[in-house]
Design a protein around this nucleic acid. Structure first.
Lengths: 243, 243
DNA sequence: CCACGGGCTGAACGGTCATTCAAACTGCAC
DNA sequence: GTGCAGTTTGAATGACCGTTCAGCCCGTGG
């Protein structure tokens, strides 16, 4: 029975993953149960067997993917000790890659869909609110830690968190949508500069922690064409470790 | 024939208005041609007579509503002479009301839908990019004007415009979605404070131009419950002046 | 070995639209 | 008044897709 239950849980997650993937690729409106089923490698009927209806499935998939992202991010951050570096890391993880086929980009697309569904779905709205608050709280916490350790200057942590999170959201939208004026590198640069200015540190000091350290020196690269984007085969999404 | 053409144009606009209204209320996915038709006071067949397909209609409606907003806003701004007040006005107009039934809120909801459609519709993507760039250019222009007039300090106008526009976008999403932590008044306050800090003026100086001047003094009101929201009858959308 | 029950499926059902069409209507031009 | 071009509609069409269902598969417990 335990084996059954574990199997059952695995199927649910498998379907949720497939749903997130399809939604990211086709958009919420254009997502069909049969698409999700075929990506998950099963039948439409089974998808409905695990989720009452398409509506519930989509709602769950939306919040699932973003809770996923939040958990992974905060887990990754907890290992970094310096507040400055933790903040830099948070920014780095928040910046979507501007070339397609990236998991982070998919997560952002889902987040946009979630915004749209939010006004008409109380459950989604509630999840969104929780996630957003946790996210801002995460930022505020880093700021307070840094202030206690003398790494940051004096600002209202909650106020900064709201402004900084909003700035990142607004910029991320532009990056995700492939706006030629805002590359990922530029977003990174803008965010770190802003944080440094408000909290009183030199952005160059935290460049080491970034995935792409050249972002800070390379100013606002205008060439946004990402090249032929060698459509990598293989699974788009990394295998999930079992719970 | 001129009469016919004018009539035809009027119908198109009537349908686009209806479409925008329905999309705002029900969301893009849940919008049916028959809904649009009944709001416009005609038949589904006629809607298809003016627009090739549902897809085209929705895409046009999305960009139509936002181009509309942009034009009205910039027209309204051109009357204000002081750069500080012009910026304050721009902020004021950008802040959605957090109670439902407001046209500005609908416009924001459409803007969110537009973001979602953008990655999969080249025409929409192109319109979005143009509108966004115009918007940022509008901000940058105000900054440059203000600098020339000695109203603002020295900052990179384009850089400021990007950061400021992104901040407003991020905050507006929270207000539109009814996040209890971010009321319209708080958004207004945050934006004006930020602008004043970067451009070197006292936000209190421009409070006079705001629709809701108490926003600046009333700090971050936590009570976000908008009350029983007396569902106002009457037309949701102001009558449009004939072109 | 047998039966039970959860997991799974293919096929069928039914409703909901987008889209088409033939016909009616309107007002303008001649 | 006649005809024409543009406008409007109600009804018909047909595809698509969510959902249901009757039954099969298979591991497990007795």
């Amino acid at each position: 029975m335990a084996g059954r239950r574990r199997l059952s849980e695995a199927r649910r997650i498998q379907i949720l993953d497939a749903a997130a993937q399809v939604i990211g690729r086709r958009g919420l409106c254009e997502t069909r149960i049969s698409d999700i089923a075929s990506v998950a490698g099963t039948s439409s009927a089974l998808v409905l067997y695990y989720f009452e209806s398409k509506d519930r499935l989509l709602a769950e998939a939306l919040t699932y993917a973003d809770e996923q992202f939040y958990e992974e991010t905060t887990a990754g951050l907890s290992e970094v000790k310096s507040a400055r570096e933790r903040l830099a890391r948070l920014v780095d993880l928040s910046c979507p890659y501007d070339r397609p086929g990236d998991g982070r980009l998919d997560t952002w697309l889902l987040w946009l869909e979630l915004w749209n569904r939010s006004p008409r779905d109380a459950a989604v709205a509630s999840s969104r609110r929780t996630l957003d608050r946790q996210w801002r709280e995460e930022i505020a916490e880093i700021v307070r830690d840094g202030q206690a350790a003398g790494e940051f200057g004096a600002v209202d942590a909650d106020d900064f968190a709201l402004r900084f999170a909003s700035l990142m959201d607004g910029l991320a939208v532009l990056v995700v949508l492939g706006d030629p004026d805002v590359s990922r590198a530029r977003m990174l640069s803008v965010c770190l500069r802003e944080a440094g200015r408000e909290l009183g540190f030199d952005p160059a000091d935290v460049a080491g922690i970034l995935m792409d350290p050249t972002a800070l020196t390379r100013r606002a690269s205008r060439d946004a064409t990402p090249g032929p984007s060698s459509a990598a085969p293989g699974p788009r999404r990394a295998a999930r470790p079992a719970r």
